Amino acid sequence: RSVMTEEYKVPDGMVGFIIGRGGEQISRIQQESGCKIQIAPDSGGLPERSCMLTGTPESVQSAKRLLDQIVE
């Protein structure tokens, strides 16, 4: 099973929602998708923050879907 890492951008203002209280939302996304998510510590003043998604292609797709649901 191939593991890939893909960069994915999320709106900087939504990072708090994505991480959730005490990190529980991001933990849930990682468990549900099976994908490891690393969010950049800051956006460098840009409107979007970079996330690194690491996992199988299916888990990366799944994580993107879950992130999109939060961001919308």
Rank of each mutant, 00 (worst) to 15 (best):
I26R: 03
G55H: 01
K36F: 10
S50P: 10
G45L: 05
D42S: 12
D12I: 10
P11D: 09
G13T: 15
E58D: 15
I70L: 15
E72K: 04
P11T: 04
R1F: 15
D12K: 08
P57D: 06
E24V: 07
P11E: 08
G45S: 11
P11N: 04
S43P: 02
R49S: 06
L46F: 14
K64R: 12
Q25L: 05
V71A: 10
S2N: 04
G16W: 06
E72M: 13
E24R: 13
I70F: 15
T54L: 06
P41R: 11
E58I: 08
G23F: 03
P57E: 13
K64P: 01
S43W: 04
S27E: 14
I70Q: 12
Q61N: 12
D42P: 14
D68M: 13
K36S: 10
S33Y: 01
D12W: 03
M4A: 07
E48H: 05
K9R: 09
R21W: 15
G16N: 10
R1Q: 01
G44E: 14
M14K: 08
T56E: 10
F17P: 14
T54K: 14
D68I: 06
G34Y: 02
I37S: 01
E32I: 06
R65Y: 09
V3G: 06
C51E: 00
I39Y: 03
D42V: 07
M4F: 14
R1W: 02
I18F: 10
L66E: 12
T5G: 05
Q31C: 14
G13I: 11
F17T: 14
G55L: 00
S2A: 11
S33H: 02
S2C: 06
C35Q: 00
V71G: 08
V15E: 05
P57I: 06
L46E: 15
P47Y: 04
I70C: 14
K9G: 03
V60A: 02
I26Q: 06
L66K: 10
V15I: 07
M14H: 04
I18W: 05
A40E: 12
Q30W: 15
E58K: 10
A40F: 05
C51K: 00
L67I: 14
M14R: 04
I26V: 05
E24A: 11
C51L: 12
I26Y: 03
P11L: 05
G44N: 12
C51R: 00
L67E: 01
A40C: 12
G34A: 05
S62K: 14
R28V: 05
I19S: 09
Q38A: 12
I26E: 02
E58V: 07
V15T: 04
G22M: 04
G44K: 11
S43A: 12
R1M: 07
S2M: 15
I39D: 01
A40S: 11
L67Y: 00
P57Y: 09
E72S: 14
R65I: 09
I19G: 07
S2E: 13
G44T: 14
S59K: 10
E7P: 05
G20S: 07
C51G: 01
E72I: 10
I18T: 03
G55E: 00
R49M: 05
T54P: 00
P11F: 03
V10C: 07
Q61T: 14
F17H: 14
Q38L: 10
V71M: 06
E32L: 06
M52K: 10
G34M: 05
R1V: 10
R28Q: 11
M4G: 04
I18D: 03
L67N: 01
P11K: 07
I39C: 05
F17C: 13
Q38R: 11
P11M: 04
E24F: 13
E6R: 12
I39A: 02
D68P: 01
P11H: 03
G22H: 12
Q61H: 09
S62E: 14
E58P: 08
V10K: 01
R65T: 12
Q38I: 14
I18E: 04
I26D: 01
I37D: 00
S33W: 01
G55T: 00
Y8P: 00
G20E: 14
D12G: 09
Q38C: 13
S2W: 04
L46M: 11
T54N: 08
L53A: 01
V3I: 15
D12V: 10
S33D: 00
F17Y: 12
Q31L: 10
Q31A: 11
S33L: 02
V15D: 03
G44R: 12
Q61K: 09
I19A: 11
G16E: 14
D42L: 06
Q69D: 15
I18V: 11
E6L: 11
I37R: 00
E24K: 10
S27F: 04
S2D: 03
M52N: 07
P47M: 06
V71F: 08
S43H: 08
E6N: 03
D68S: 13
I19Y: 08
E58G: 09
K64V: 06
R49L: 03
F17S: 15
E32C: 06
V71W: 06
P57A: 12
S2V: 10
T56R: 09
V71R: 09
E6H: 07
G23R: 10
M52R: 12
Q31M: 08
